[in-house]
Design a protein around this nucleic acid. Structure first.
Lengths: 241, 241
DNA sequence: CGACACGTTGATCGTGCTCAAAAAACGTGG
DNA sequence: CCACGTTTTTTGAGCACGATCAACGTGTCG
């Protein structure tokens, strides 16, 4: 169960037994978290790194006028910034979007494993670079696409990242976003998101149910989104849930 | 001249003589580059890291329909992704926006210095985290602010990052962006950027000249932009140009 | 069963886009 | 140094995507 991190990192680097053991040791003390619970808040001094074992989280910033912008979604296997603890203050918050399980890894443990296992360090670097790539792609998404393609693109990304891609481009996966969340992620009003999703539904591309997204025609969705998954730098076998 | 990197990194970590020497050795073989010249292109296999010694560069992605999105501006002292070479393929391009000078650092040299000098490694991490913070802030900017505040925010950031902030909030600094560049960075049409800059000018906030931006009232600009520089995680003395 | 979160819909308004064109600034070669 | 082409800035008019305001439905859980 708790080897999600190992499985994720194994996409890029093949580990030996010792490395696997070291990774497994990181994730021993998991704790349950409820929906809406914060892992860390803007302004906090980060002393730990969080590993999501189960559930989805969101990384976001709030403006003085109350507007929120979600800047990332975190899913099982994702590590919240391998090195945040270098900074003195978080410049954003992270909260759970669904109940789940997380592990808090002390900075020292993180540094120790990085120093002891260069191949693990490299895999973690890979993750960091992929996260940055995702951030850039979100910028492209918000900056250049209009609502229809923008939401389609987000759905494509989540589908791939969730490791849920199935043959035939038809499937169903856990996706605990409210329409308001989608809006805050792609820079649209919840109302407009609602209308746009309705259009996507009517085009026979997706069919959102409670906390799930049913993918009806992934190829068509990719086409309307202009989705090219190269930026995810995925390799080897995807993780399944 | 070539110690810009050292000066930048010294914002966060104080180096001893040996560390300074190692950093200086990285930047020996600089080469001149012209405006528009590419340092690396999407799809390339990155084998080097680039250090900008002089001039500004842009990091961007192009969509099939020809739309461009600039995802970062790079200025003197900036390193283009300490670890890109881990990836097999660039997912974006980097080109010069002005003539300048750059250094190509082979991956091995980069790794060597990181392994030999933990404090340098830490400073580079800091840079990476700041770059990510900037990316997140851009997302917030495009996702939540409308044109006026959006462009104001970009100007604030560039002013601070250029190390040009002067007492009184009045000053003048090198900023080689065309209005089209601004548009591609913040997700607006060049035409709308033009009208919006006109408004900023008429409000007495800024006054753009050829390749320069004259800051007329930084405090007022910060106010309309909702600019909070915490995300730049700056410390100690800023670098001056 | 009642409260609250989430989804859905309508009507209207406005920011920013599109298309079109011209003026100004710039760079390059004769 | 001026002529010329190119890039950049500027302006106008009309349109559309998405925001805003205002309800109302629907589901879920205590």
């Amino acid at each position: 169960m708790a080897d999600i991190l190992t499985r994720k990192l194994s996409r890029w680097v093949k580990f030996d037994a010792e490395e696997r053991a070291a990774l497994a040791r990181l994730a021993v003390a998991s704790r349950p978290v409820v929906r809406g619970q914060h892992l860390i808040r803007e302004g906090d001094d980060p002393t730990h790194v969080f590993l999501i074992l189960d559930g989805w989280a969101q990384r976001y910033k709030v403006l003085p006028d109350g507007k929120r912008q979600i800047v990332a979604f975190l899913m099982p296997g994702d590590l919240c910034d391998t090195h945040v603890f270098i900074l003195e203050k978080m410049d954003h918050s992270i909260s759970m979007m669904s109940p789940g399980k997380v592990v808090s890894i002390p900075a020292d443990d993180m540094l120790a494993i990085i120093n002891a296992f260069p191949r693990i360090a490299q895999a973690l670097w890979w993750c960091t670079l992929v996260d940055e790539g995702i951030l850039r792609e979100w910028l492209v998404n918000i900056g250049t696409r209009e609502a229809y393609g923008r939401i389609a693109h987000l759905f494509c990304e989540l589908y791939v990242r969730a490791g849920a891609v199935a043959r035939g481009g038809i499937g169903d996966f856990f996706m605990p976003l409210t329409q308001a969340d989608v809006g805050e992620a792609v820079g649209l009003t919840a109302i407009h998101v609602n209308r746009t999703i309705k259009a996507l539904k009517q085009s026979g591309l997706v069919d959102p149910a409670k906390s799930r997204l049913r993918m009806l025609d992934f190829d068509a969705l990719k086409a309307v989104a202009g989705f090219d998954e190269a930026y995810l730098h995925a390799r080897l076998v995807p993780v399944h849930d």
